[in-house]
Design a protein around this nucleic acid. Structure first.
Lengths: 147, 147
DNA sequence: CACAATTTGATTGTGTACAACTGAATTTGG
DNA sequence: CCAAATTCAGTTGTACACAATCAAATTGTG
């Protein structure tokens, strides 16, 4: 299993599955004019509004190089507002606009469509999620240990 | 399980795991001066040399918009050659240079490092790969059916 | 043969990802 | 109290992804 031929069965599977899911979201989110990463940010804000860029980055494992332009696009679309915090001028607070809050209604149908497309039963879904979480943790720990 | 809160547990897990694995490859492939997608192309060519762009695209599910610039970078690095086919001037044949062939030796150690980092036993690895493959197939089929 | 449809790769434009760096603001150690 | 270190967001540069479009070459059909 250490050959260059079989090596990537899992890694490539992961890479392919991730792109497939993203491309499904592309179609499903077309109505909302959101990309998948933008949708993730909106999910985080619907969950808890008024977050620092840093907090969003920690939750989604994305850095400012990705989030800054993404948040500007969401601001351009009128979904969020970016305001400097008064007590700490370094940090920027991201808040939903009324339009951003309202978009949550339109997003209600998304999960069930995605769920239907995945066609996995509850047990397999749970098992997979756990495996993925452990995989991410292992891989990140290993990467940090060697670099 | 259809709430916006829980929706993305699996999808986000997939997204996060895929990025984590790619970031591990970034470190591991540093020595070879390859990105992960470039490594995938090299794997495909080590497996079978002299392939059309179209064939590589089919194997990796990547289109020419991704592959054309990527292959030019590999050509710039001296790893592959791009030649127009004489019998069909539309198609471009990608061939490994001696340097490209030689790089395979340096890549021998990659799979075991990745395998160690993932820390999954054989059974879980197999189960996960199968789940991912089925997931990809379901999701792609569903996407095609609605768009 | 003519010519419309298809195939193939390239190009353009948008949007992530992420490393590396910058600059301003804040915190901390002495 | 103040210089050094740290934090935070933003910017720059490189490299995917992928939709849309294009041009050239080939193929199928009448």
């Amino acid at each position: 299993m250490d050959s260059l031929r079989l090596d990537d069965q899992l890694c490539f599977g992961l890479y392919a599955a991730s792109r497939a899911v993203t491309s499904l979201y592309r179609v499903v989110l077309e109505d909302l004019d959101l990309t998948y990463p933008q949708y993730l940010v909106m999910l985080a804000l619907w969950e808890e509004d008024h977050r620092q860029v840093k907090e969003l980055g920690a939750e989604l494992s994305l850095d400012s190089g990705t989030l800054s332009p993404l948040l500007k696009r969401l601001e351009g679309a009128g979904l969020v507002r970016r305001t400097r915090q008064t007590d700490d001028e370094r940090s920027v607070r991201i808040s939903l606009t009324p339009e951003g809050v309202a978009l949550k209604e339109k997003a209600q149908g998304v999960p069930s469509v995605i769920g239907a497309a995945m066609a996995l039963d509850e047990a397999e879904l749970t098992r997979m999620r756990k495996s993925l979480d452990r995989l991410t943790a292992s891989v990140n720990a290993y990467r940090d240990s060697i670099s």
